[in-house]
Write a protein that binds this DNA or RNA. Structure first.
Lengths: 148, 148
DNA sequence: GCTTGACCTGAAGTCAGGTTCATGGTCTAT
DNA sequence: ATAGACCATGAACCTGACTTCAGGTCAAGC
Protein backbone atom coordinates (compact mmCIF):
# COMPACT_ATOMS: atom_id res chain seq x y z
CA UNK A 1 0.00 0.00 0.00
CA UNK A 2 1.28 3.45 -0.89
CA UNK A 3 -0.01 6.94 -0.14
CA UNK A 4 0.18 10.44 -1.54
CA UNK A 5 1.57 13.24 0.58
CA UNK A 6 -1.98 14.42 1.31
CA UNK A 7 -3.06 10.97 2.53
CA UNK A 8 0.04 10.60 4.68
CA UNK A 9 -0.56 14.07 6.12
CA UNK A 10 -4.13 13.13 7.09
CA UNK A 11 -2.90 9.86 8.65
CA UNK A 12 -0.61 11.78 10.98
CA UNK A 13 -2.72 14.89 11.45
CA UNK A 14 0.03 17.06 9.96
CA UNK A 15 -0.09 19.75 7.26
CA UNK A 16 1.26 18.72 3.87
CA UNK A 17 3.78 21.55 4.18
CA UNK A 18 5.27 19.88 7.23
CA UNK A 19 5.87 16.61 5.42
CA UNK A 20 7.56 18.48 2.59
CA UNK A 21 9.65 20.31 5.18
CA UNK A 22 10.66 16.98 6.78
CA UNK A 23 11.66 15.64 3.39
CA UNK A 24 13.67 18.78 2.64
CA UNK A 25 15.43 18.34 5.99
CA UNK A 26 16.46 14.80 5.13
CA UNK A 27 14.03 13.00 7.44
CA UNK A 28 12.61 10.84 4.66
CA UNK A 29 15.66 9.68 2.70
CA UNK A 30 15.38 7.83 -0.59
CA UNK A 31 11.68 8.32 -1.11
CA UNK A 32 10.30 7.15 -4.43
CA UNK A 33 8.63 9.61 -6.83
CA UNK A 34 6.01 9.09 -9.52
CA UNK A 35 5.96 11.90 -12.11
CA UNK A 36 7.43 14.22 -9.54
CA UNK A 37 5.01 13.37 -6.75
CA UNK A 38 6.32 11.78 -3.55
CA UNK A 39 5.23 8.20 -2.91
CA UNK A 40 4.80 7.30 0.75
CA UNK A 41 5.29 3.54 1.20
CA UNK A 42 5.44 1.39 4.34
CA UNK A 43 9.03 2.52 4.89
CA UNK A 44 8.06 6.21 4.93
CA UNK A 45 5.02 5.62 7.12
CA UNK A 46 7.18 3.83 9.67
CA UNK A 47 9.72 6.66 9.38
CA UNK A 48 6.96 9.15 10.20
CA UNK A 49 6.00 7.09 13.25
CA UNK A 50 9.64 7.16 14.36
CA UNK A 51 9.89 10.90 13.72
CA UNK A 52 6.74 11.37 15.80
CA UNK A 53 8.15 9.56 18.82
CA UNK A 54 11.69 10.93 18.54
CA UNK A 55 10.21 14.43 18.43
CA UNK A 56 7.97 13.61 21.39
CA UNK A 57 11.08 12.51 23.30
CA UNK A 58 12.59 15.96 22.75
CA UNK A 59 14.89 15.31 19.81
CA UNK A 60 15.57 18.13 17.36
CA UNK A 61 15.10 17.85 13.62
CA UNK A 62 18.83 17.79 12.96
CA UNK A 63 19.30 14.88 15.36
CA UNK A 64 16.47 12.96 13.71
CA UNK A 65 18.21 13.60 10.39
CA UNK A 66 21.35 12.05 11.89
CA UNK A 67 19.35 8.96 12.85
CA UNK A 68 17.93 8.68 9.34
CA UNK A 69 21.45 8.95 7.95
CA UNK A 70 22.40 6.00 10.16
CA UNK A 71 19.55 3.90 8.78
CA UNK A 72 20.89 4.61 5.29
CA UNK A 73 24.45 3.79 6.33
CA UNK A 74 23.58 0.19 7.21
CA UNK A 75 24.24 -2.45 9.91
CA UNK A 76 27.44 -0.80 11.17
CA UNK A 77 25.25 1.83 12.88
CA UNK A 78 22.99 -0.56 14.83
CA UNK A 79 24.81 0.25 18.08
CA UNK A 80 24.34 4.02 17.63
CA UNK A 81 20.69 3.54 16.78
CA UNK A 82 20.16 1.31 19.81
CA UNK A 83 21.93 3.81 22.07
CA UNK A 84 19.79 6.62 20.66
CA UNK A 85 16.52 4.80 21.36
CA UNK A 86 17.70 3.84 24.85
CA UNK A 87 18.62 7.45 25.62
CA UNK A 88 15.34 8.81 24.25
CA UNK A 89 13.41 6.20 26.17
CA UNK A 90 15.08 7.32 29.37
CA UNK A 91 14.50 10.99 28.54
CA UNK A 92 10.84 10.41 27.78
CA UNK A 93 10.34 8.38 30.96
CA UNK A 94 11.77 11.27 32.96
CA UNK A 95 9.61 13.74 31.05
CA UNK A 96 6.54 11.63 31.79
CA UNK A 97 7.41 11.73 35.48
CA UNK A 98 7.61 15.53 35.36
CA UNK A 99 4.33 15.76 33.47
CA UNK A 100 2.58 13.56 36.00
CA UNK A 101 3.63 16.04 38.67
CA UNK A 102 2.34 18.90 36.51
CA UNK A 103 -0.93 17.03 36.15
CA UNK A 104 -1.17 16.65 39.91
CA UNK A 105 -0.75 20.41 40.19
CA UNK A 106 -3.56 20.98 37.69
CA UNK A 107 -5.81 18.56 39.59
CA UNK A 108 -5.00 20.32 42.85
CA UNK A 109 -5.84 23.68 41.27
CA UNK A 110 -9.12 22.26 39.97
CA UNK A 111 -10.04 21.28 43.52
CA UNK A 112 -8.86 24.65 44.82
CA UNK A 113 -11.06 26.62 42.42
CA UNK A 114 -14.01 24.25 42.80
CA UNK A 115 -13.82 25.00 46.51
CA UNK A 116 -13.34 28.72 45.95
CA UNK A 117 -16.31 28.78 43.55
CA UNK A 118 -18.48 26.92 46.05
CA UNK A 119 -17.43 29.27 48.86
CA UNK A 120 -17.57 32.37 46.69
CA UNK A 121 -14.12 33.22 48.06
CA UNK A 122 -10.60 31.84 48.26
CA UNK A 123 -10.39 32.82 51.89
CA UNK A 124 -11.18 29.47 53.48
CA UNK A 125 -9.27 27.23 51.04
CA UNK A 126 -6.35 29.65 50.86
CA UNK A 127 -5.95 29.72 54.62
CA UNK A 128 -6.34 25.96 55.06
CA UNK A 129 -3.17 24.10 56.08
CA UNK A 130 -2.27 21.38 53.56
CA UNK A 131 -2.65 18.67 56.22
CA UNK A 132 -6.35 19.63 56.51
CA UNK A 133 -6.99 18.97 52.80
CA UNK A 134 -8.93 15.82 51.90
CA UNK A 135 -6.38 12.96 51.73
CA UNK A 136 -6.42 12.54 47.94
CA UNK A 137 -5.98 16.30 47.48
CA UNK A 138 -3.14 16.33 49.97
CA UNK A 139 -1.38 13.67 47.86
CA UNK A 140 -1.75 15.87 44.75
CA UNK A 141 -0.54 18.92 46.65
CA UNK A 142 2.50 17.09 48.00
CA UNK A 143 3.38 15.74 44.57
CA UNK A 144 3.02 19.18 42.99
CA UNK A 145 4.99 20.96 45.71
CA UNK A 146 7.75 18.41 46.27
CA UNK A 147 11.33 19.15 45.28
CA UNK A 148 12.39 19.06 41.69
CA UNK B 1 10.67 33.61 53.20
CA UNK B 2 11.65 35.67 50.17
CA UNK B 3 14.15 35.09 47.40
CA UNK B 4 16.19 37.10 44.91
CA UNK B 5 15.73 36.50 41.20
CA UNK B 6 18.90 34.41 41.18
CA UNK B 7 17.66 32.16 43.99
CA UNK B 8 14.27 31.73 42.35
CA UNK B 9 15.96 30.91 39.06
CA UNK B 10 18.02 28.17 40.72
CA UNK B 11 14.91 26.78 42.44
CA UNK B 12 13.21 26.28 39.09
CA UNK B 13 16.27 25.48 37.01
CA UNK B 14 15.63 28.50 34.80
CA UNK B 15 17.96 31.29 33.63
CA UNK B 16 17.51 34.63 35.35
CA UNK B 17 16.77 36.16 31.95
CA UNK B 18 13.70 33.93 31.64
CA UNK B 19 12.26 35.11 34.95
CA UNK B 20 12.76 38.72 33.88
CA UNK B 21 11.09 37.89 30.58
CA UNK B 22 8.12 36.36 32.44
CA UNK B 23 7.83 39.46 34.57
CA UNK B 24 8.01 41.70 31.50
CA UNK B 25 5.24 39.61 29.91
CA UNK B 26 2.96 40.12 32.89
CA UNK B 27 3.25 36.61 34.35
CA UNK B 28 4.28 37.87 37.77
CA UNK B 29 1.95 40.79 38.44
CA UNK B 30 2.38 43.11 41.41
CA UNK B 31 5.76 41.84 42.50
CA UNK B 32 7.43 43.79 45.28
CA UNK B 33 10.80 45.53 44.71
CA UNK B 34 13.57 46.47 47.13
CA UNK B 35 15.80 49.22 45.77
CA UNK B 36 14.91 48.17 42.27
CA UNK B 37 15.49 44.42 42.76
CA UNK B 38 12.58 42.03 42.40
CA UNK B 39 11.51 40.25 45.57
CA UNK B 40 10.16 36.74 45.04
CA UNK B 41 7.78 35.85 47.89
CA UNK B 42 5.53 32.81 48.40
CA UNK B 43 3.02 34.30 45.96
CA UNK B 44 5.59 34.53 43.17
CA UNK B 45 6.99 31.07 43.87
CA UNK B 46 3.50 29.60 43.61
CA UNK B 47 2.96 31.64 40.44
CA UNK B 48 6.11 30.08 38.97
CA UNK B 49 4.82 26.61 39.84
CA UNK B 50 1.56 27.45 38.08
CA UNK B 51 3.42 28.84 35.06
CA UNK B 52 5.45 25.63 34.95
CA UNK B 53 2.40 23.39 34.79
CA UNK B 54 0.33 25.61 32.49
CA UNK B 55 3.27 25.67 30.10
CA UNK B 56 3.63 21.91 30.39
CA UNK B 57 -0.04 21.59 29.49
CA UNK B 58 0.63 23.46 26.25
CA UNK B 59 -0.50 26.96 27.17
CA UNK B 60 1.18 29.92 25.51
CA UNK B 61 2.69 32.84 27.42
CA UNK B 62 -0.11 35.19 26.42
CA UNK B 63 -2.74 32.79 27.77
CA UNK B 64 -0.85 32.45 31.03
CA UNK B 65 -0.80 36.25 31.19
CA UNK B 66 -4.57 36.20 30.81
CA UNK B 67 -4.83 33.80 33.75
CA UNK B 68 -2.63 36.04 35.87
CA UNK B 69 -4.83 39.00 34.96
CA UNK B 70 -7.81 36.98 36.24
CA UNK B 71 -6.10 36.36 39.58
CA UNK B 72 -5.62 40.12 39.89
CA UNK B 73 -9.22 40.81 38.92
CA UNK B 74 -10.60 38.92 41.92
CA UNK B 75 -13.35 36.45 42.86
CA UNK B 76 -15.53 37.25 39.82
CA UNK B 77 -13.07 35.25 37.69
CA UNK B 78 -13.11 32.04 39.75
CA UNK B 79 -15.28 30.31 37.12
CA UNK B 80 -12.90 31.20 34.28
CA UNK B 81 -9.92 30.04 36.30
CA UNK B 82 -11.63 26.78 37.19
CA UNK B 83 -12.60 26.20 33.55
CA UNK B 84 -9.02 26.91 32.47
CA UNK B 85 -7.55 24.38 34.88
CA UNK B 86 -10.15 21.79 33.91
CA UNK B 87 -9.39 22.28 30.23
CA UNK B 88 -5.63 22.12 30.75
CA UNK B 89 -6.03 19.04 32.90
CA UNK B 90 -7.92 17.33 30.11
CA UNK B 91 -5.37 18.46 27.52
CA UNK B 92 -2.46 17.20 29.60
CA UNK B 93 -4.17 13.87 30.26
CA UNK B 94 -4.60 13.40 26.52
CA UNK B 95 -1.00 14.44 25.93
CA UNK B 96 0.15 11.91 28.51
CA UNK B 97 -1.80 9.19 26.68
CA UNK B 98 -0.04 10.12 23.44
CA UNK B 99 3.36 10.17 25.12
CA UNK B 100 2.78 6.74 26.62
CA UNK B 101 2.21 5.45 23.09
CA UNK B 102 5.40 7.21 21.97
CA UNK B 103 7.23 5.55 24.84
CA UNK B 104 5.91 2.16 23.75
CA UNK B 105 7.31 2.85 20.29
CA UNK B 106 10.71 3.70 21.76
CA UNK B 107 10.66 0.51 23.85
CA UNK B 108 9.73 -1.52 20.78
CA UNK B 109 12.59 0.06 18.84
CA UNK B 110 14.98 -0.72 21.68
CA UNK B 111 13.98 -4.37 21.44
CA UNK B 112 14.23 -4.23 17.64
CA UNK B 113 17.79 -2.89 17.67
CA UNK B 114 18.86 -5.13 20.54
CA UNK B 115 17.77 -8.04 18.37
CA UNK B 116 19.40 -6.60 15.26
CA UNK B 117 22.64 -6.01 17.18
CA UNK B 118 22.59 -9.56 18.51
CA UNK B 119 21.88 -10.96 15.03
CA UNK B 120 24.28 -8.57 13.30
CA UNK B 121 21.45 -7.89 10.86
CA UNK B 122 17.90 -6.59 10.75
CA UNK B 123 16.90 -9.34 8.41
CA UNK B 124 15.34 -11.74 10.89
CA UNK B 125 13.63 -9.19 13.12
CA UNK B 126 12.50 -7.11 10.13
CA UNK B 127 10.88 -10.12 8.45
CA UNK B 128 9.22 -11.40 11.62
CA UNK B 129 5.42 -11.08 11.70
CA UNK B 130 4.27 -9.04 14.72
CA UNK B 131 2.32 -12.02 16.11
CA UNK B 132 5.63 -13.89 16.44
CA UNK B 133 7.14 -11.18 18.69
CA UNK B 134 7.49 -11.99 22.40
CA UNK B 135 4.13 -11.13 24.03
CA UNK B 136 5.28 -8.03 25.90
CA UNK B 137 6.92 -6.69 22.72
CA UNK B 138 3.79 -7.40 20.75
CA UNK B 139 1.84 -5.26 23.23
CA UNK B 140 4.30 -2.39 22.71
CA UNK B 141 4.14 -2.80 18.95
CA UNK B 142 0.35 -2.82 18.93
CA UNK B 143 0.19 0.27 21.11
CA UNK B 144 2.73 2.09 18.93
CA UNK B 145 1.05 1.10 15.66
CA UNK B 146 -2.60 1.47 16.66
CA UNK B 147 -4.72 4.22 15.18
CA UNK B 148 -3.99 7.77 16.44
C1' DG C 1 36.42 54.59 49.06
C1' DC C 2 36.97 50.92 45.94
C1' DT C 3 36.15 46.35 44.15
C1' DT C 4 33.02 42.57 43.47
C1' DG C 5 28.97 40.34 42.48
C1' DA C 6 24.31 40.44 41.83
C1' DC C 7 20.85 43.18 40.52
C1' DC C 8 18.49 46.59 36.82
C1' DT C 9 16.73 48.40 31.79
C1' DG C 10 15.28 48.73 26.78
C1' DA C 11 16.40 47.29 22.47
C1' DA C 12 18.01 44.16 19.42
C1' DG C 13 19.20 39.49 18.18
C1' DT C 14 18.62 34.41 17.79
C1' DC C 15 16.70 29.97 16.84
C1' DA C 16 13.71 26.04 15.75
C1' DG C 17 10.15 24.70 13.35
C1' DG C 18 7.39 25.39 10.42
C1' DT C 19 4.18 28.27 6.78
C1' DT C 20 3.12 31.07 2.83
C1' DC C 21 3.68 32.64 -1.80
C1' DA C 22 4.14 32.76 -6.73
C1' DT C 23 4.33 29.85 -10.27
C1' DG C 24 3.69 25.82 -12.66
C1' DG C 25 3.05 20.48 -13.79
C1' DT C 26 -0.17 16.21 -13.90
C1' DC C 27 -4.52 13.38 -13.62
C1' DT C 28 -9.32 12.38 -13.87
C1' DA C 29 -13.92 13.17 -14.95
C1' DT C 30 -17.27 15.68 -17.79
C1' DA D 1 -10.01 20.27 -24.06
C1' DT D 2 -11.12 22.28 -19.96
C1' DA D 3 -12.08 22.37 -14.97
C1' DG D 4 -10.89 20.96 -10.44
C1' DA D 5 -8.12 18.63 -7.32
C1' DC D 6 -4.19 17.12 -6.57
C1' DC D 7 1.00 17.47 -6.79
C1' DA D 8 5.76 20.27 -7.24
C1' DT D 9 9.55 24.06 -6.19
C1' DG D 10 12.63 27.80 -4.00
C1' DA D 11 12.60 31.70 -1.47
C1' DA D 12 10.80 34.52 1.73
C1' DC D 13 8.30 35.03 5.76
C1' DC D 14 6.44 34.24 10.48
C1' DT D 15 5.97 33.07 15.48
C1' DG D 16 6.93 32.06 20.12
C1' DA D 17 10.07 32.01 23.52
C1' DC D 18 13.80 33.32 24.95
C1' DT D 19 18.77 35.48 25.02
C1' DT D 20 22.21 38.85 24.53
C1' DC D 21 24.08 43.35 24.83
C1' DA D 22 25.46 47.87 26.35
C1' DG D 23 25.38 50.56 29.92
C1' DG D 24 24.05 51.52 34.71
C1' DT D 25 22.68 50.89 40.11
C1' DC D 26 23.38 49.10 44.67
C1' DA D 27 25.08 46.72 49.14
C1' DA D 28 28.70 44.35 51.32
C1' DG D 29 33.32 43.31 52.41
C1' DC D 30 38.11 44.71 52.59
Amino acid sequence: MTYTIGQAARMFGLPVSTLRYYDREGLLPGMERRSGARVFGEKEIEALRVIECLKASGLEIREIRQFMAWTVEGPSTYPQRLALFQARRKALEEELGQLRRMLDMLKYKCWYYETACADGSEERVGAMAPDRFPPEIQALYDSAHSVG
